[in-house]
Structure formats: structure tokens, C-alpha cells
């Protein structure tokens, strides 16, 4: 942990060497998700509700997914950029150091320009939390936190899977975008609006709905069972196969060197 903090401050120092570029990129990040927010606003002001959810309720989805994703991207960027680490031989360096490979990949890159998006998610929360019609109790506040934190961890798991795939293919990686970028962009609405099949997929295979749709039902008192409050924790199971897959990739790398 101490080591991680050290890496954290090193990355901070490095990025602050290029302040102008840093802030421009941050603003760019902000704008990109702002365009999505704007399109969401246009749609909701035209239709008022979608599947019975109001604008402010949809915003809770948007903000929790955006914040979760951006946290994962900011701190787990090493996995996102892992193909590059493999390509330039930096990964060999990680293997000759006496620390766990996962920790080193994690620490290899952090991207603070993602704060632009995190900030936006925070603003949206400030706007939507009081207006969403949710009666906020301690349990519900906890649920909202779980949505963000577990969401972040599941997206992080997806980055690990992405990195693991890069042990096997470089060109074919683009298909993972539908789960990472797609998960973020389509997560602006409750995942249930995409239909039964997609919801099942996002419940049992890549559990994005477990930290978004089901706890939202709990927040809105549509489902009163405490089980729905804790579904985000259930989604963390995804990290296990993700981790195992990455380790499998490392083993393959160590026997083939590529």
C-alpha cells in the first residue's frame, strides 16, 4: 500500500510536468461525457420517462456508472494500456522485480485526467440525488456507495480481462470495447431497457447490471428486499475469473516469451 502511494505521487509529479496538456485533456474528457449527458437530456425531455424511470432516476445510473468507470480507468489505466507494456518490453522489467505482477501492472500507469469525468459524475449526483424521488435512508446511501465502488471494481475486472487477452491477440482486442466503453456508454440508462436477453447477459456473464439496475430498483423502492441492496457485492465474483485469466496469460507468456 505504501508502495502504491509512492507510485501514485510519482505519476502525479510526472503528469504535472505538462500542466497545459493535462488540463486540456481533462477538459476534453469532461466534454466527451458531457455530450452523452446532453443526448440523454434531449431524449428524456422529449419522452419524459423510459421504462417508468424519470430523468433524475436515469441520471443516477449515468452518474454511478460514469464515476465507477472513471475511477477504474484513472487507477487501473495500467491494464488498459497493457498491450503497450507488452509491446515495448516493460513487462519483462516487471517480471524481474520482486513484487506481484498484478501490483506492478496496476501501478505502471495512472491517469488523473479522468478527474474531468469524475467531477462531472459528482455534479450530476449533486443534482439528481435530491430530485430523484428517492427517500434517502442510511441503507440507501450505502447502496449508492456500493453501486459506485463495486461498479469501479467490475470495470477494473474488465480491464484485467482486456489485458489478459493481449497475451493472445493484439489486433483482435477491439471487440472488448463493447464491454468497456460500451458498458460505460450504455450504462447511462438502466441496463434493463435493452431487453431481457441483454439484462440476463449483464447479470450472469458480465455482471454490469448487478451494480446498476438491481440496486436502482432497491433505491426506488420497486424492490424492497435487502438482497437487492447487496447485489453490487455479488458482482465482485467477476474479479476471480478475470484474475485467473490474467494469470493464465502470464503463464503463457513465460513459456513462449510473446
Amino acid at each position: 500500500m505504501r508502495l502504491y502511494m509512492k507510485f501514485f505521487s510519482m505519476h502525479m509529479k510526472s503528469q504535472m510536468q505538462y500542466k497545459l496538456s493535462f488540463f486540456l485533456t481533462m477538459i476534453g474528457q469532461f466534454l466527451v461525457s458531457f455530450a452523452i449527458l446532453l443526448s440523454l437530456y434531449f431524449m428524456m425531455s422529449r419522452f419524459n420517462v423510459v421504462m417508468g424511470f424519470t430523468y433524475e432516476q436515469v441520471l443516477l445510473c449515468f452518474a454511478s456508472v460514469l464515476m465507477g468507470y472513471s475511477l477504474a480507468e484513472m487507477l487501473g489505466r495500467g491494464f488498459d494500456l497493457f498491450p503497450r507494456m507488452l509491446g515495448n518490453g516493460e513487462f519483462d522489467r516487471a517480471l524481474v522485480r520482486p513484487r506481484s505482477v498484478i501490483t506492478q501492472v496496476l501501478a505502471s500507469k495512472m491517469d488523473f485526467t479522468r478527474l474531468g469525468r469524475i467531477l462531472q459524475a459528482a455534479f450530476v449526483f449533486i443534482y439528481a440525488v435530491p430530485k430523484s424521488g428517492v427517500i434517502w435512508t442510511r441503507d440507501k446511501i450505502l447502496t449508492l456507495f456500493l453501486m459506485v465502488i463495486c461498479g469501479s471494481l467490475v470495470f477494473f475486472g474488465l480491464f484485467i480481462v482486456y489485458a489478459a487477452f493481449s497475451f493472445f491477440t493484439v489486433e483482435g482486442l477491439e471487440f472488448m470495447n463493447i464491454l468497456t466503453d460500451g458498458g460505460r456508454e450504455f450504462g447511462r440508462y438502466p441496463y434493463a431497457i435493452y431487453g431481457e436477453g441483454i439484462l440476463k447477459f449483464l447479470t450472469y456473464f458480465v455482471p454490469l447490471a448487478l451494480f446498476q439496475y438491481y440496486p436502482l430498483l432497491y433505491l426506488l423502492d420497486i424492490e424492497k428486499s435487502k438482497l437487492y441492496m447487496f447485489t453490487p457485492l455479488l458482482s465482485l465474483i467477476f474479479l476471480l475469473p478475470a484474475y485467473a485469466f490474467f494469470q493464465y496469460g502470464v503463464r503463457k507468456y513465460k513459456s513462449t516469451g510473446s
Partner: peptide, 13 residues
């Protein structure tokens, strides 16, 4: 760096 995302986002939208 900056131009790209600002430009592509606004025009794209």
C-alpha cells in the same frame, strides 16, 4: 491533445 477531443465532440454531437 486538447483540440482533438473538444473538436470531435462538438462537431460530432
Amino acid at each position: 491533445t486538447g483540440i482533438r477531443s473538444v473538436f470531435t465532440t462538438i462537431v460530432g454531437f
